[in-house]
Design a protein around this nucleic acid. Structure first.
Lengths: 135, 135
DNA sequence: AATAACCTTTAAGTCAACTTTAAGGCCAAG
DNA sequence: CTTGGCCTTAAAGTTGACTTAAAGGTTATT
């Protein structure tokens, strides 16, 4: 069965060799076999595992969360657990959206009020909006 | 005119003394006067300046952006500049909201599909959704 | 045989926005 | 007059997710 060096894996997955070693240390990638010269040798499905990590990151999962998911997969664990992790993530994402939306509302309202003319002193609406109140 | 020690300022503003010194080094707070014993002495309006910083942070402005706004205020600069900074921020916030909303959509759809029953192997929808494609 | 292009390890650097630590000076209360 | 609580500085530590560097071994090509 064909195996890959860390450099070949890096090229196929788009993840830098050093990042792959980092993921190994962080227990996201399994400890691979070694050649006589102590070179890492990866099975082909290591590519898919790395791409899973990359995609999960793009979804906003942290490495800690991704590790949880990978451990579940490796242990062929319970789907309910995976669902819980994803549900927690969804909750956090919705909270972030709420927070940003509040900011968006105030900021766009303020920008609409501001003609962009005149000096800063004596009531620039942007500065006043920030100074006055949080949230 | 009454002045404040750094500790008093910290208490009134809710910002730790060390953070105030940090802001001074980062040129967000002006260099204050000193007593004979080399203690910092702040005018009362330093409280408002710190609160401006705190609120701007809550709005999601970075210290770099806040520094820009403060420099404009200090120089009694052009309002159009402040408007530009705020408009850039608004754009960034909207981009973040878009990104998070895409994630939210896929994740909530995926969660709805997942019964939470069965093992991970052979098609857990959550894992598959992440594995399949980035966005 | 030499050289380039890999691979190995450990350690340190990056970014933001601070916090913590260390080592010491100043001042009010008991 | 000493103890505790402020204040001073510079330097190092924190978090997350790596990247860069240093120093050296291996393999492939010329």
């Amino acid at each position: 069965m064909q195996t890959l060096s860390i450099g070949e894996l890096a090229e196929r997955s788009g993840v830098a060799s050093q990042a792959i070693r980092f993921y190994e240390k962080e227990k996201l990638m399994p400890v691979p076999q070694r050649t006589d010269a102590n070179y890492r040798r990866y099975p082909l499905d290591a590519v898919a595992r790395l791409q899973f990590i990359v995609h999960a990151k793009q979804w906003g999962f942290t490495l800690d969360e991704i590790r949880e998911l990978l451990i579940l997969q490796d242990a062929n664990g319970d789907r309910a657990q995976a669902k819980r992790i994803a549900a927690e993530k969804l909750y956090k994402i919705r909270e972030q959206i709420k927070h940003l939306s509040r900011i968006e509302a105030v900021l766009s309202r303020t920008l609409a009020e501001c003609t962009g003319e005149g000096p800063m002193q004596e009531g620039c609406p942007i500065v006043e909006a920030i100074a006055e109140k949080a949230e």
